[in-house]
Design a protein around this nucleic acid. Structure first.
Lengths: 226, 226
DNA sequence: GGAACGCTTCGCCCGGGAGCGAAGCGTTCC
DNA sequence: GGAACGCTTCGCTCCCGGGCGAAGCGTTCC
């Protein structure tokens, strides 16, 4: 549940229960303990109660823990494969995250389609790189060549994003790197799903890369997935 | 146990068990899991097995965890005070160790009674400084003045130890320093107990410094205890 | 007002992990 | 060689904590 909140979102208890694969009552107990322990903050909104990380220090903790304990503590095979899929590729709001989202960002940078940063997340930063979703501290820009390349793929490159404004990005905690968000991230995700390169999982936020997509990503965007 | 290793020292299993206030068998189980989990590294040296943090990342983890969960280092007062006593002064085989043993060694060196080293333990050494009791890599010698001073106190200074042979010493893990062992260490410990300066604890290896002993150590041997 | 909904609290079951002592193995000391 | 020592393994007990379903409380919708 903490990992699900890792990107700074606020999620209701029921969603967190589903993410964790436990009963609502179980989730409620854990969430209460996490709030009591100062790890989560909760806000009531009508009959919903939304939980979020209590602060950046919790994000740092998750980050360090992920580095020390990289392997998934797989209790059940089903959960294991599902968690694996989520780590591999997932949606974050409306754009792509996980290894896939990071690899896409890296490929676009390596290709010269995006300039302004190297895609890595600096832990040593001045802390201005906020825990929550849209980062703006790195001034990523879409180059003219990049806009053309994406347009060729059928991605509806937002007009404002062409050159004038910096691109939005998120920090991907498990990968310690950035991935695209904002209008361009949304358009890219939509197009890749349209093309059949990606397919949404039945439940949860996981996304599967199809064989077609694997080939397409490699030849068209120079994205290499392990 | 991890916190005890937090400053980068390497400590044997028995010390860690004592620090944690659990039985050796319990500590052994936990240590094995920590090694298996990649948090600790272990090196065998004789009949001792020394554990240390597996790398800087573990230290970072402890740091971040401590920041998020600052509370409760001491669960039971009894355990705390007992561990404290053992750390303060104890016997090691038949001679004195802990802060007392190290302070004695330091005082004798500072006084010119012992020459040949400064009493500190170098971790970075070539590894020849054995973990187990009798170290011989530093050539400590008892000076003529030192022999006289100890004889005045009633210590039966072994004949061979007077000048001809190097003094035996042990590495004191919690203090990262040397303390006297061998015949001279034994004679000194026996005499201090005889004088009533020290008193054995009912159980365990802890030793208590009496008020008489505190004064005597300070005036006769220039030993200062915190 | 009634029903569905979201969440929490309560009571219960159950498995696993923590803890210890005894015993075994290898090492060191006398 | 014998004894003490340091550590680990094994077997055992016990209790904590996770998990669930049922029930209760507050909110929203029709």
């Amino acid at each position: 549940m903490l990992l699900a909140l890792g990107d700074g979102r606020a999620l209701p208890a029921s969603v967190l229960a589903s993410e964790a694969g436990v009963a609502p009552s179980t989730a409620s107990g854990h969430l209460a303990k996490l709030v009591d322990g100062g790890l989560l903050a909760v806000t009531s909104q009508g009959r919903h109660r939304s939980y979020r990380l209590a602060g950046p220090h919790v994000g740092e903790l998750l980050e360090v823990l992920a580095r020390v304990a990289p392997a998934a503590p797989v209790r059940s095979l089903r959960e294991g494969t599902r968690a694996q899929a989520v780590r591999e590729a997932r949606t974050c709001y409306d754009h792509l995250a996980g290894r896939l989202g990071v690899a896409l960002m890296q490929a676009l940078i390596g290709d010269g389609a995006i300039t302004g940063g190297d895609g890595r997340h600096r832990v040593e930063g001045d802390g201005a790189d906020r825990l929550s979703a849209p980062g703006r501290d790195v001034d990523y820009r879409l180059t003219r060549a990049g806009a053309r390349r994406l347009a060729t793929l059928g991605v509806e490159v937002p007009a404002v994003g062409a050159e004038g404004t910096p691109l939005r990005y998120c920090v991907d905690w498990t990968e310690q790197a950035h991935h695209l968000s904002g209008p361009l991230g949304r358009a890219l995700a939509r197009r890749l799903l349209e093309l059949g390169w990606l397919r949404r999982a039945e439940r949860g936020r996981a996304v599967h890369v199809t064989d077609l997509g694997r080939r397409g990503l490699e030849t068209e965007l120079a994205v290499r997935l392990a």
